[in-house]
Design a protein around this nucleic acid. Structure first.
Ligand SMILES: [Mn+2]
Ligand SMILES: [Mn+2]
Ligand SMILES: [Zn+2]
Ligand SMILES: [Zn+2]
Lengths: 140, 140
DNA sequence: AATTAGATGCAACTAAGTTGCGTATTTTTT
DNA sequence: AAAAAATACGCAACTTAGTTGCATCTAATT
């Protein structure tokens, strides 16, 4: 990964007020370099090319980043979380596309979702999640 | 569970052309009695009050029922599948509500989803899945 | 440099779901 | 009604994502 991503990641992390550790920076830089959401496994593979980090640490780093809104995680039908960085453009409410052949997850940023659905009596709305399934450009 | 549900389940299963076994009938009758989607665990508990069935068998029964379109399964953030019977009213495209406190899943049948989203170039649409998160009437 | 709150590594654990295979049950054929 | 074929079931073992406890290390603060 290019060095400027490392610097950008470092800055984003320092803005949280929490500790800017090497593992956090490297993990976020890895996610910044990606167009698609990555699984814990995929991130681990990319990180362990040079220098290693424990899988538990990675789980904790990802959990921390989710809590700090640096990334968001996406649940798939294969019971595996996928993680994607939050940029300014790419924020809160947006839809996801899951390719049913290669399982790759794409964030559909310009997909508008109506924010307030009508629910049964007494139900309290919090957030809406929209997933489109099909085949990606490479698999179609 | 009332006997008429057992008979209804039996008929639905015989209509598939495959074998109408005791386990399949009992499982479907259990799901017919429920308003909400149930986990494998929850179904197992209800079934094992009288007479038992193996957990692997239940997994296979549920898988078979999904394939035969007698039920549908819903992925949650807790990596657990939930299963709900398909009735005439309650069919293909509809939204789901997940309570973030008690994790109960409700099918939102009168929630219309626009069927054909605009996707990136080369992507092929198959289906759309909409999940609303919040608190159910009991938890709100 | 010393302190301290918080991050990391390791081992052990949890839990959902899957696989292989021998046995039992359902359905078809005789 | 009995035999044969096809399919479902039960059990044990396995796989894999994610979690927990605890001792050790390290980034930030003094
Ligand atoms: Mn996204
Ligand atoms: Mn449903
Ligand atoms: Zn694909
Ligand atoms: Zn609830």
């Amino acid at each position: 990964m290019p060095n400027n991503l490392y610097e950008k990641a470092k800055e984003l992390i320092s803005h949280t007020g929490d500790r800017t550790t090497h593992h956090r920076i490297r993990t976020l830089a890895t996610l910044l370099a990606e167009q698609h959401a990555l699984t814990h496994r995929e991130i681990e593979e990319r990180l362990n090319v040079k220098g290693q980090l424990d899988r538990v640490t990675l789980y904790r780093v990802l959990e921390w980043m989710s809590k700090k809104n640096l990334i968001h995680k996406i649940a798939g039908d294969d019971r595996v979380w996928r993680f994607r960085v939050n940029t300014e453009l790419h924020s809160h409410q947006h839809a996801h596309f899951i390719c049913t052949r290669c399982t790759k997850v794409t964030c559909l940023n310009d997909f508008r979702i109506k924010p307030d659905p009508s629910l049964p009596l007494g139900y309290l709305f919090h957030e809406i999640e929209l997933t489109v399934k099909g085949l990606c450009a490479e698999c179609a």
